[in-house]
Design a binder for these strands. Sequence first.
DNA 1: TATTGTTATACTCTATAACTATA
DNA 2: TATAGTTATAGAGTATAACAATA
Lengths: 158, 158
Amino acid sequence: MPDREDRSWGGAAFLLAQLGAHATTAFAQRVAELDLTPPQAGLLRMLAQVPGQSQQTYAERLGMPPSRFVTLVDTMEQRGLVERRRGEPDRRAYALYLTDDGQELKRRLDAIGRAHEDDLCAALTTVERATLRELLTRMAQQQNLTAGVHPGYRQRRG
Amino acid sequence: MPDREDRSWGGAAFLLAQLGAHATTAFAQRVAELDLTPPQAGLLRMLAQVPGQSQQTYAERLGMPPSRFVTLVDTMEQRGLVERRRGEPDRRAYALYLTDDGQELKRRLDAIGRAHEDDLCAALTTVERATLRELLTRMAQQQNLTAGVHPGYRQRRG
DNA sequence: TATTGTTATACTCTATAACTATA
DNA sequence: TATAGTTATAGAGTATAACAATA
């Protein structure tokens, strides 16, 4: 006998949290096939969109402290995906760029992103998917969320 | 100059992850006013819906190992919100129930849930909210997600 | 011997803050 | 003195697995 007050739990907020967590987990599993973590995938994407910025700029945008960002870049630099170039004229800073391998991996990542999107929306028609995107976009704007950035770029364990 | 391949990142999957993380954080902040964590709120809700089950039953449904669930119940029992009764006839098990204080707090939690829902959907009309719920519900079903349960009941830090 | 609940422990992730090098 | 990046470290949160009590 579920009590009457309990309707609020079946609302959009709960469904959003539930599906969001599910989407995040599924995405982490997919990018793991490319030996990437979600934060690494996020950085790959940022460097493809806007290259040449300083580490602090990217770190802030990804919502992580500079100290954590260092190890993130270290890993990807060792794999030959990202390149650090000393800043000009400020030689304290680094400017970050994708290598050719990084750009190639970004393309594979985009393909994975499309498959992820398609799988998650399998229950919806093309028109319904557009409706959903429109509603969610308006919600995100009203809630002052930055487009293309979310705080789910946290490390996940195996 | 964002590259053309990058469309997949603006899709429903990304918006879902972004808004889901936002909803989860906002919910955690709201229930903190009641001195509750999200897992505690989840347990409160479960005990109101289906009382008298064993700890393992609830733990599995909340998606946490029994060892973690023990400390969760400990805290709420000490606050006088939850009661452990020795199982009959199996005296190994406990049956869990809400106390009167627990039921009172559940009512306040429901009120918070409604406010949370309303705030999150502020950009949408009543009809649009219904549409959104319908689409998300179908997606959740197709993805085999259990109604009323999501893995976001993890401890959050202040 | 199997199961419920509990406790102990080791591990991962994280943020904080001290440190260096350039400015 | 201030800033970009780095390194070291301590703390929180977690799962794993050993344990106790009952079946």
